[in-house]
Computed example of a mutant assay.
Amino acid sequence: MKRLLLALLLVLVASSAQAAVWKVDTDHSAVHFSIQHMMIAQVRGAFHDISGSVTFDGAVPSAFDITVEVDSLDTGVDKRDDHLESADFFDEQRFPLIRFVSTAVTPSGEGYEVTGNLTLKGVTRPVTFMLGGLDRSITDPWGNVRRGGVATLTIDRRDYDVRWNAPLDGGGLLIGNDVDIIVDFEVLEPR
């Protein structure tokens, strides 16, 4: 019995020793989004200030904790950015951060299915996204070991109390409800 407990303890110690927390490289990561405008076109934008970490068990990602600064929003039009940061949309003064914390990471096809809790504008809801990449390491010219990935998902903005809209004369609404999101990111191995 003692040998069995000792063996189990060694396995647990070995597996926890292999877990490593890699930091998101904020200079090479961003959250991109698009939403339908006037029922005829897509408007695109990005959040450029993304931080956090990805935990790896060996070579496999096992946990994500990602934070996005709302005031890093950029659609290329200052007036639109100001409106999006207002209480009509993100209410950046009251809710300056968007956060995702994973609850499960499951291999799926060539990547992973990641489930977790997304908190936006003070509302937390479960989401699942597809993740590609993170399968190989590259050493940059300065000796940093990196991995890169792309996450994709679609959310309904109304689920997060982002409800502002305006009717169009011919019917329909100014802004769509579905937001397509692509997160491009790089992570750095701990030194």
Rank of each mutant, 00 (worst) to 15 (best):
R3N: 15
L5V: 10
L6Y: 10
L8W: 13
L9Q: 05
L12H: 02
V13K: 07
V13G: 09
A14F: 13
A14R: 07
S15K: 06
S16G: 12
A17S: 11
A17K: 10
A19Y: 02
A20T: 07
W22G: 00
V24I: 15
V24N: 08
D25L: 05
D27M: 13
D27A: 15
H28D: 07
S29M: 12
A30G: 11
F33E: 00
I35R: 03
I35N: 03
Q36S: 12
Q36K: 15
Q36F: 02
M39G: 03
M39T: 12
Q42A: 10
V43H: 02
V43E: 04
H48F: 13
H48K: 13
I50L: 14
S51F: 07
S51R: 10
G52K: 01
G52P: 01
S53D: 04
V54A: 01
T55H: 10
F56K: 00
G58P: 05
A59V: 06
P61A: 09
D65G: 07
T75E: 03
G76E: 09
V77F: 08
D78V: 06
K79E: 14
S86Y: 06
D88L: 11
D88Q: 08
E92G: 09
R94K: 13
F95Y: 15
L97Q: 15
L97V: 14
R99L: 01
T103F: 05
T103E: 12
P107C: 10
P107Y: 06
G111I: 06
E113I: 04
T115W: 04
L120K: 02
V123P: 11
T128Y: 07
G132R: 13
G133M: 10
D135G: 15
D140R: 05
D140T: 08
P141M: 08
V145R: 11
R146Q: 12
R146F: 10
G148A: 13
T152K: 12
L153I: 13
D156W: 00
R157P: 00
R158K: 14
R158S: 13
D159R: 08
D159L: 13
D161V: 13
N165Y: 08
L168I: 03
L168S: 01
G171N: 06
G172W: 09
G172I: 03
L173E: 11
L173V: 12
D178K: 09
D180C: 03
V183L: 14
D184V: 13
F185N: 07
E186W: 01
V187H: 04
L188A: 02
L188I: 11
E189S: 14
E189T: 00
P190C: 08
